[in-house]
Nucleic acid binder design. Structure first.
Lengths: 361, 361
DNA sequence: CTGTTAGCGCGTTCAG
DNA sequence: CTGAACGCGCTAACAG
């Protein structure tokens, strides 16, 4: 059926071993012979069988990328930069690898399932992106899987996930973390410095690490301004925290709930930019102007944020840089930082959706 | 190193063939033996070697997905739905497959390179998404590659691309097309019916099929309203066409150019929603209100469009449905339509960014 | 129902 | 510098 190495060898009048050597260019071959082989390859339109090669050489051309959902620009940006870095374009000495993108939908089971599938394929590397579900059982299960992968030579990189300590010292997993905590803190400080005191918080799913970190930053800022738990304003802030998903609809619903709990909120920080769009929509539908009546802030600085109505104040995470770095790390093109952990800084982007609170009764 | 079939066989006191049969469940095995094997698999934490299996069985667990850029929501949505359909979740009888996402950046060379890489991997299927570059040489090259893939049993699906006729009748490639032409026509008709006559057109790269189809729809609408080439208004419309990329910056720049050519434009149709955001930004920066001074329309109806300022009138393409359908087709879970071509209808979404032109001098 | 025997297509010794 | 031989880990055909 398909033309094989042997076919090429026969055509060129050499042994298949020689053809292999020419193709991989790792061995000395007479220029004369080499040309003959190359011609035979051309004439026969020969394409190597990657699976056979992988089996024989115990290598793989695949790198797995686990994301919640590639359709979400947050993950899309990471995946895109990652793929570009490891792909044919970056054709480094190693030769590009193919990115296997897996949507886990944030489900721990799906995560494990895909890790197994990637282990089956003997993937050269695996990158887990986005916040982790903070459940001890699941964390242990993932750690075990990753330890096995790392031990068997698969490069494991965490991108936007909290670092993970593996059981035995199996090939270290390196981590590219985001400074969610710091970003959230600076964001809330920005609102506080504008004069806001009744700040609603539409945050993400309660069990995810990203949610926890951003919430911690938020509360650290409040506390630093004398609004910690126990103080009147602090307790009110706690009451103004609503958990939801990372989607627009959650932002919309949570905002209605928030307005019910305290019609007098003057600012809302959202779990991310997508949620913030839902928050804005809900506020508009309730007849509140932004930022006149209520200030709104997002997180991530996704591309559309600057074009929202009004332009969204948010915290920028350099996602493509993160994805590219994760790509270099998983390819072994960049040495892992000492300790295996590098944290990517975040930056407050002040735009039009936040302003001082109005002085209405 | 890694535990193999033979290891499991030894542990269970059976032959490796039996283990294989238990694992694949395609052959009768005594319940007794089956249990023993399963236990051995558990105890040894055995994970099949996908490459060896693929080699022996001449199958593959990989499906390639070519996109311009997964970070672009247009492609992200398609890729996401596609992956969900073919992945472990949809665990149909065939067993889920892994999606290999390849960013071509719209480059013909990259497209061919990735097709070769996927051929190397003996991918079970390949899906090409997005408009094609309309260059005869390249089209022929792609057709040849696809013909080879199809002949060797790889399912080939085109999603959002014009259908392709392959040289010999190699396993037909099925196409999921979008009604870009009809959508664009209805969109321009909408503007005309509002009373617009000086309509600018910020369209995509000149050589892409999507650009051509949308432009054809646009011009068909003009012509139907007596504004074809040769008429004064028609020729003016031709002058008001600016080509650019599919990104926001192109929309911004093209708008400035458009305003230079005719400061009196009352409406602008953009190549897509992303470009439309750039158009809106440029208009705002030039002190033009939307839709008061100038109406703006996008294309695709990406998720952010409804939250733009103002909400974007656009043409909806059900991208996730398209991606899912492409997934089913490439998996052979759905019979290809007669003729191998199914066209997905598009829908005009009238929102706040379009309105009748104002009656200024 | 189960074990034995061949390959799948290629990389890699080891001789020559 | 080149060829012959072996094995990667698994499936499939053929006996039993």
């Amino acid at each position: 059926m398909a033309v094989t190495l042997a076919d090429v060898a026969a055509r060129a009048g050499v042994s298949s071993a020689t053809v292999s050597r020419v193709l991989n260019g790792n061995y000395p071959v007479a220029g004369n012979t080499r040309e003959r082989v190359k011609r035979a390859v051309e004439e026969l339109d020969y394409v190597v069988n990657g699976q056979a090669r992988a089996l024989a050489a115990a290598t793989s051309d695949l790198v797995g990328v686990l994301v919640n959902d590639v359709a979400d620009p947050f993950f899309g940006l990471i995946a895109s930069a990652l793929q570009a870095e490891i792909g044919a374009g970056g054709a480094g000495p190693v030769g590009g690898k193919l990115a296997v993108v897996c949507n886990t939908g944030g489900s721990p089971e799906a995560e494990l399932t895909y890790l197994t599938l990637l282990e089956r394929q003997r993937a050269a590397g695996v990158v887990l992106t986005g916040g982790a579900v903070e459940d001890d059982t699941h964390t242990a299960a993932v750690a075990a899987r990753l330890a096995r992968l790392a031990t068997s030579g698969t490069h494991v990189v965490l991108c936007g996930r909290p670092p993970l300590t593996l059981p035995d010292d199996s090939g270290q997993v390196t981590t590219v973390a985001f400074d969610n905590r710091g970003g959230a803190r600076r964001l809330t400080e920005h609102l506080l410095s504008l004069g806001h005191r009744r700040i609603g918080c539409v945050t993400g799913p309660v069990e995810r690490s990203t949610t926890r970190h951003r919430l911690e930053g938020h509360r650290a800022a409040l506390e630093a301004h004398g609004m910690g738990p126990g103080t009147g304003e602090g307790d009110n802030a706690l009451r103004l925290t609503v958990h939801g998903g990372y989607d627009r609809a959650s932002g919309y619903d949570a905002t209605l709930e928030l307005l019910r709990r305290d019609p007098g909120v003057t600012a809302i920080v959202a779990a991310n930019d997508t949620v913030a769009l839902g928050v804005c929509a809900a506020l508009r539908d309730q007849g509140r102007s932004i930022p006149g009546d209520v200030s709104v802030a997002g997180f991530d600085d996704l591309p559309f944020s600057v074009d929202a109505a009004p332009a969204l104040t948010t915290v920028r995470i350099p996602l493509q840089e993160a994805g590219a770095r994760a790509g270099r790390l998983v390819m072994g093109r960049q040495a892992p930082p000492p300790g295996g952990l590098s944290t990517i800084p975040t930056e407050l982007m002040v735009r039009a959706s936040t302003a001082p609170p109005s002085n209405r009764p």
